[in-house]
Structures are given as structure tokens and as C-alpha cells.
Design a binder for these strands. Structure first.
Length: 423
RNA sequence: GGAGAAUUGGCAGAGUGGUCGAAUGCGGCAGUCUUGAAAACUGUUGAGGGUCACACCUCCGGGGGUUCGAAUCCCUCAUUCUCCGCCA
């Protein structure tokens, strides 16, 4: 969530930048500023009342200990009016804070200056492309057909056990999944990220901390009995490691990586684009996550992009990088690069990674701070990205590496799979 | 799941209704001493709100209550520990 002093001091900038998301925030921003002024006025009034009442209470205490009970009783009578005033002011203040927060929760992060204007994913700007798109032989298949032909994934079985969108990986299909997870984790740890195994369910405070609540609860599976949420991404438990944490400056930067399954309800998604591995309720993902000094966060973002490029280069998959436009930018992000791998048989690009700088937007909610050079607590920047999301990488491998003899395995994965072809 | 105990500042640990944001120790920071370091000694050292800056206000696991006044009393929730039960 945005910081009020920042909104106050950069009002015009906030409004013009939010316009990149195609929202007119003028009214909300103005209302936030007014509500905040009113909040401070109420706070001051309450504080002054409390100060007066505290002073009298102290006096009463002194009178009692010095044996002047009668005088004390007289003062007691005087304090009753304070109680009423305090109560009223307190309620007014809380109502004001609630109204203020309700508005703040509706404001998304301020896009970075380099975010292009635009409405939909069609306005995203391609900034990099690499890897030749293979020309497939006659009779080449989409990945869901390949998965069936080589008995790698059983979608129907998953439907029987759980429901649509819960695939069952079998044999070499399962092994390939495990290989990818191990390969990604090895690459990430080699790049300096510390490996974590995180809870797959989180509490309300965590879901709030990374911004899934209060708005996007419909996208998460909710275990009502225990009021826990299944994670939609490792970002949630991973970033909440740092909730209410003050880091020393020399502890920055922090880089962590973790593999988790991800659960998404994806309510309302149907049709051809959800075929096969394209969109699932449960999928595997390896995530990288950083906590950075504000001065370094954009450099770190570039570093993460380079790191993911390296993975795709090694896997020899055709991919491109997009700079997301304002309209396609996530609620909490200031700048996002998407990676897409080309699905040859489907003739379309599939998103496999999304790397974002959230600046202080998450840190503000999380109260994630560091001691700056003045010895003051300052909000840190958080970043994260997938490295990588498994299903669409798998789809890309199956489709792009298919030959008439079978599916070849990318060379870097062979040490992990133990086989070099699926036939 | 049942019974009991606990939750205080970076850590340890006092504090059972009044001047307690909180003793003391450790740690951190600054200084004295020293060629330098250590030791010793002296001072300092939580967070948030608010203010030009002060003042002032809030916070002793979370929430609510009693009282003129709560770290201290009551209710409730959470967490941790011990014992019992169950169990990968």
C-alpha cells in the first residue's frame, strides 16, 4: 500500500503515473489527503484530552499517597467528563482510520516511469527475443496430445481424484518435473539465493501482507475450518518471512529461492486457452525473491531478468521478454517484466515468469524495514519472480523438442532426468 | 483432543493497581585510559503517531472490559512449554 506522506508530497506524480493504469485516481488521492488531515486533527485532539486526564490521574495518585483522600475524591468527579470525550474522539478517530485505509487499499502501486501506457496485454512492449522457433515435422502435436501419447500426464485421472486442473504426472513426466525443480533450484542457489522450504498454507496476516487480501480472496482456496489459505505462489509465504522485521543494513540484500506447489481457483477461466497445461488449479513453481536497499532495487531487478534469461538460454527454448504496460501491471507492482516461451504447436506465447519490483508497496504493509545510514528505520524494497513456472516450461519442452522419434531432453536436464529421450 | 504453566525492550530477566516506557545483567554505540587492542570506567541505547522543533500521545503476545489511574485485576483469542492421549 502506498505511503500517505508520499501521496501528499507527490500528488501530481501519483495521479499522472496511475493514469498509466487507465485509472483516474484524482478523487481518491484528494480524499486520502483530506481524510489524513482530519485524522491528524482528531489524533491531536484526543492526545490533548488524554494528556489532561493523565495529569489529573497522577495528581489523584499523589493525593492518595499523601493521605489527602478528600481532595482526591473531588478531583475524581472532574475526570468523568474526560471519559466521555475520550471515548467519542477515539471512535471518531478509528472510523476515520478505517475510511482512510479502505481508500488506500483501492490504490495500486505507482508505475515506474518506464512503464508504457496501454490497456491490455497487446500493449506490452517486447524488449528482447531469443532462440529460433523450430520448424516442426508433419504430424507434430500440441503438448496435451504428446502427454497422452507418451503417457506423461493423465489429466482425466486428476479430474477423477480432485477435479479439472489437477493433472497427474506419471513416469518420465513426473521425473521431468522433478528434474526441472532440481535444476532451477541448483541454478538459483548457485546465483546466491538461499533455498527455503515454505508452508503451503498461510494465515490471514500473511495473505494481507503481500496484498492477496482483502481484495483477491476469491482467487485463493480458503480452508475455513482453520482460516488458512492455500498459497497461490511462494511469494506469499516467502515475503512474509520478513513481516515485522527490521534488517541491519549489512544484511541487505537478501535473496531466497523456494519450490512450492501453487493453488489458484481461476474462477471464470474456460475455453481453449486453458487446455492442457496452459492454466491449472495446482502447479509447481520455483520462485526467487529479494529484499533490497531502495537504491539498488532496479539494478537487482535487471539482475533477476539476466538470471532467468540464462535459464532459458540453457534450456534452449525460444522466448521473449515483455515490459508490461500500465493496464497489464499487477496491483502491487511498480515495474514488471514477463517472460514468455513459444508454444510451437499452439502457435502462441505462454507466460512462464513474471519478475517485478514492488518498491515499498509490500514493505509498507509488511513493516519490512532496514536501518539506514542515519540509524533510522526505512522501508526496504521487495522483488520477486518465477524461475520458473513448471507447466508451461514443460509444455514448451514437449512441443519444441518433439521429433519423429520422440521427445528429446534439453542437454542441461539429462543429468537430472537420467534419460535423454522420451519415446 | 484433555490438564497445567507461561508470553515484558536485541537477548536474559525483575516488576501483582499510582511518579513504570519499565530495575538489573548481557549485547550495541560513543567517550576516557592505551602506541594500538583488550580489560576497566563513564555516558548512551525500543517502536509508532504528532510537531518547523519541542511538548504531548500510544505500545509490556492480539482484542475487549473494570478503574480517576492497568505491565499489574477480569474476559477472550493466539502462541510457546510440560504431562497425558493419538500419530507420519
Amino acid at each position: 500500500m502506498l505511503q500517505i506522506p508520499y501521496i501528499r508530497e507527490n500528488k501530481a506524480l501519483v495521479i499522472s503515473r496511475l493514469a498509466k493504469r487507465n485509472i483516474d485516481a484524482t478523487e481518491t488521492v484528494n480524499a486520502v489527503i483530506v481524510l489524513d488531515e482530519e485524522r491528524r486533527a482528531l489524533q491531536t485532539e484526543l492526545d490533548n484530552t488524554l494528556a489532561e486526564s493523565n495529569a489529573i490521574s497522577k495528581e489523584i495518585g499523589v493525593l492518595y499517597t499523601s493521605g489527602q483522600a478528600e481532595k482526591a475524591k473531588g478531583l475524581k468527579a472532574k475526570t468523568s467528563e474526560f471519559k466521555e470525550t475520550t471515548k467519542t474522539l477515539n471512535e471518531a478517530l478509528n472510523a476515520k482510520i478505517e475510511a482512510l485505509n479502505a481508500l488506500l487499499y483501492t490504490l495500486p502501486n505507482v508505475p515506474n516511469a518506464t512503464v508504457p501506457a496501454g490497456n491490455t496485454d497487446e500493449d506490452n512492449v517486447e524488449i528482447f527475443r531469443e532462440g529460433a522457433i523450430p520448424t516442426l515435422f508433419d504430424g507434430a502435436l500440441p503438448h496435451w496430445e504428446l502427454a497422452k501419447k507418451y503417457d506423461l500426464i493423465d489429466f482425466e485421472l486428476g479430474t477423477k481424484i480432485a477435479g479439472a486442473g489437477f493433472p497427474v504426472y506419471k513416469g518420465k513426466g513426473a521425473r521431468l518435473q522433478r528434474a526441472l525443480i532440481a535444476y532451477f533450484l541448483d541454478k538459483n542457489t548457485a546465483a546466491g539465493y538461499t533455498e527455503y522450504q515454505l508452508p503451503h498454507l498461510v494465515n490471514e496476516a500473511s495473505a494481507f501482507g503481500t496484498g492477496q487480501l482483502p481484495d483477491k480472496e476469491g482467487q485463493m482456496y480458503h480452508v475455513t475450518e482453520d482460516n488458512l489459505y492455500l498459497i497461490p505462489t511462494a511469494e506469499v509465504p516467502g515475503t512474509n518471512i520478513f513481516r515485522d522485521v527490521v534488517l541491519n543494513a549489512d544484511e541487505l540484500p537478501v535473496g531466497i529461492t523456494g519450490y512450492t506447489p501453487c493453488f489458484r481457483r481461476e474462477a471464470g477461466s474456460y475455453g481453449a486457452h486453458v487446455r492442457g497445461l496452459n492454466r491449472l488449479h495446482q502447479f509447481d513453481k520455483v520462485e526467487i525473491l529479494r529484499v533490497e536497499h531502495p537504491d539498488n532495487s532496479y539494478k537487482a531487478l535487471d539482475g533477476m531478468v539476466e538470471h532467468v534469461k540464462d535459464l532459458l538460454q540453457e534450456l534452449k527454448l525460444p522466448y521473449r521478454i515483455l515490459r508490461l504496460c500500465g493496464g497489464d501491471l499487477g496491483f502491487t507492482s511498480a515495474l514488471t517484466f514477463d517472460f514468455e516461451v513459444f508454444s510451437t504447436a499452439q502457435d502462441r506465447w505462454l507466460e512462464i515468469s513474471s519478475i517485478s519490483n514492488f518498491e515499498t508497496f509490500q514493505a509498507n504493509r509488511l513493516k519490512l524495514r532496514f536501518k539506514n545510514s542515519d540509524g533510522k528505520n526505512e522501508l526496504a524494497h521487495t522483488l520477486n519472480g518465477s524461475s520458473l513456472a513448471l507447466p508451461r516450461v514443460l509444455a514448451g519442452i514437449l512441443e519444441n523438442y518433439q521429433t519423429e522419434k520422440g521427445i528429446e531432453i534439453p542437454e542441461v536436464l539429462i543429468p537430472y532426468t537420467g534419460f535423454s529421450i522420451i519415446d
